[in-house]
Design a protein around this nucleic acid. Structure first.
Lengths: 214, 214
DNA sequence: TGTACATCAGTGAACGCGCGTTCACTGATGTAC
DNA sequence: TGTACATCAGTGAACGCGCGTTCACTGATGTAC
């Protein structure tokens, strides 16, 4: 499929920035087909380079995929930050805290629906791969990763007295589960062909449920 | 991998029940490796039959996979039913209704952790495949599929006055999302290496959140 | 400022792999007489 | 009860595909003198 793509002409046989180019080709592949679509040969094809040239820059297909995944996680963080930035500045700090948590959820769900391929690449790790990277790199503009952004929102709920401090530890997992589950059911599951309006309404209700149930 | 499996000896070259045998081989493959591991050639290998023999019984690999998926969905239903059956008989009907919903969640999460391969096969549909089958076949002993079992539990909450009737429509999606998300984060995601105790505790808290937040 | 040379990015060809699927076949089964 | 024959389940061989990865190579670049 798509085998006869015009190979981008190069002045010299030296590419110049092949690492970056392959990474971006990989991201493009992930965008349309998720992690499994990140295929070394296709990435080199798109860049207009012979397959094994990739090995100057990535030790293996796995390593390219991990780089793509890091980029996808950053993109999630940016989506969440965008939603947070759009928040009206705090007049009522309690309301602002609540809105923050909702914004995190909305950003997450929006990203899942707008970039399903990247979303999958970010979060469905093909078994027995390091998962730690959600906790270190993969950050957005604020310097925080998606998990940390969620944590900050939850901290704000505690700070304003909306969430009892003793329920704070591990609360990320609960909120994250709800939102992640809805995303998955919409993307891969039986909620896939839910009409868009119902989808958005379900998202609203889900976020409310988390807010009330935490 | 695993190429030299002993081919089960047959008295005659006629197999007798190849359809069933292939289906079970497919289920075994799904059990260990999820939907992608359901591979025609390997299934025939395990059954001790030449690859193309499968085509007498399944039109394509896709068709075998769908049959396996139906079986996986049935297994989910059975897991939920098992949990429901273990419930103490109703003394307090409100408490029973609440316990029913929790049992559905517990069964679902238990199945996800005990049979991750089948769980994936049941619920992650590889894009653009019919999803309707969650709603018709794929039933457990009670004759209900997982979705319907959840629905019954929710109906009971309404019947006992624990859930306002106007919140009942679509409530499946909310409860399902929460539980499904936790399952996915544990199986494929960053919660994979959460210690088992913390995992169970998180599951408890999540179900409580759903109960309170619905 | 000019030249020799080491570095190393990208080439060309090839490998072995496992997959889904098609084809013309063979031989056991069970039904009609 | 015995035999001829149609059916159709499983065989054998082959196809084309795309993949990841290895090897020995070539030729542009930039540095040392």
């Amino acid at each position: 499929m798509m085998r006869d793509r015009t190979p981008p002409p190069r002045g010299t046989y030296r590419h110049g920035d092949l690492h970056r180019a392959l990474l971006h080709a990989g991201i493009a592949l992930a965008r349309q087909g998720g992690p499994e679509a990140v295929v070394l040969r296709e990435a080199t094809r798109r860049v207009g380079v012979v397959p094994n040239a990739a090995y100057r820059h990535f030790a293996s297909r796995q390593e390219l995929l991990m780089a793509v995944r890091a980029a996808a996680l950053s993109a999630v963080a940016v989506a969440i930050e965008t939603e947070l930035a759009a928040l009206a500045p705090a007049q009522d700090e309690k309301e602002y805290a609540r809105a923050s948590l909702r914004a995190v959820g909305v950003g997450y769900l929006r990203f899942a629906q707008e970039e399903p391929g990247l979303f999958h690449t970010a979060f469905t790790v093909p078994a027995a791969l390091p998962t730690a990277d959600v906790h270190d790199g993969n950050i957005g503009r604020s310097g925080l990763n998606p998990f940390q952004l969620l944590g900050v929102a939850l901290d704000r709920l505690v700070a304003t007295g909306l969430l009892p401090a003793e329920r704070r530890p591990g609360a990320e997992f609960l909120a994250w589960s709800a939102v992640h589950g809805l995303a998955m059911l919409i993307l891969d599951g039986p909620l896939r062909d839910l009409p868009d309006a119902l989808r958005q309404q379900t998202a609203q209700r889900l976020l409310k449920m988390v807010e009330d149930g935490l």
